[in-house]
Design a binder for these strands. Structure first.
Lengths: 111, 111
DNA sequence: ATAACCTACAACCAAATGGTTGTAGATACT
DNA sequence: AGTATCTACAACCATTTGGTTGTAGGTTAT
């Protein structure tokens, strides 16, 4: 069951960009461990509510998190599939390297 | 052989930040597949030599690439270990999610 | 109804990013 | 020696980013 991961460049950009901030990574961690409202998240950081709101928006834009209305709150949940997509991309880079090594080995063995 | 991945926040920032650009990802791909000089890399993109030089510097700062002098050239090589470090970080996030699911399952089964 | 709470969104600001051009230093080639 | 090539680095510019405050709208509680 390999999900087709044909991501456009700008989607990958957003994915890694969203991960490139410690606050956002922490929000992702929390929301993967269990859902949380934006205000609950905001209470955990030494910055304004609006700032946390923006971080959540960045994560949402990257697909790493979903936001669902519940009463007056917005419940944020981390999406493990998006994390898996990012990981799959890195797997490909490692594979590129392994392919190169395999080719080099082949040359050394068969000359 | 699990490499100790005690990365500081700003190191992780740089790692994902470096990956959040299509040109840099392409440079990483090329240099993982085989070493290349900066000018060889620059020839592949529709931008100035200096711009490519900067991208390589960002990748180098993130540890994703090494630059070694060879004559008048600088040979750039992708570092598969750095890619593995990034991947290991994402593995942790997936693990956090799995731990949560496991706890939920336990509750459902044992109540 | 009124107050308290949660969110959305705009406007603003400083700093970082991604690009440019230009200048200069090493190294290699003829 | 002189020229071409490769790299380093500074200065500059437009845009994006990560933060702020302020205002307004919807929801819950008293």
């Amino acid at each position: 069951m390999v999900v087709d991961t044909a991501l456009r460049d700008d989607e990958v950009d957003r994915l890694f960009r969203a991960l490139a901030d410690a606050t956002r990574r922490d929000i992702l961690r929390r929301t993967l461990a269990g859902e949380a409202s934006v205000s609950q998240l905001a209470a955990a950081y030494a910055m304004s509510f609006a700032a946390v709101q923006k971080h959540v928006a960045v994560l949402e834009g990257a697909g790493l998190v979903t936001k669902e209305p519940r009463g007056r709150e917005r419940v944020v949940r981390g999406d493990p599939e998006a994390v898996a997509r990012a990981r799959a991309l890195l797997d490909r880079y490692e594979q590129i390297w392994r392919d190169r090594i395999r080719r080099l080995d082949t040359l050394l063995i068969h000359d």
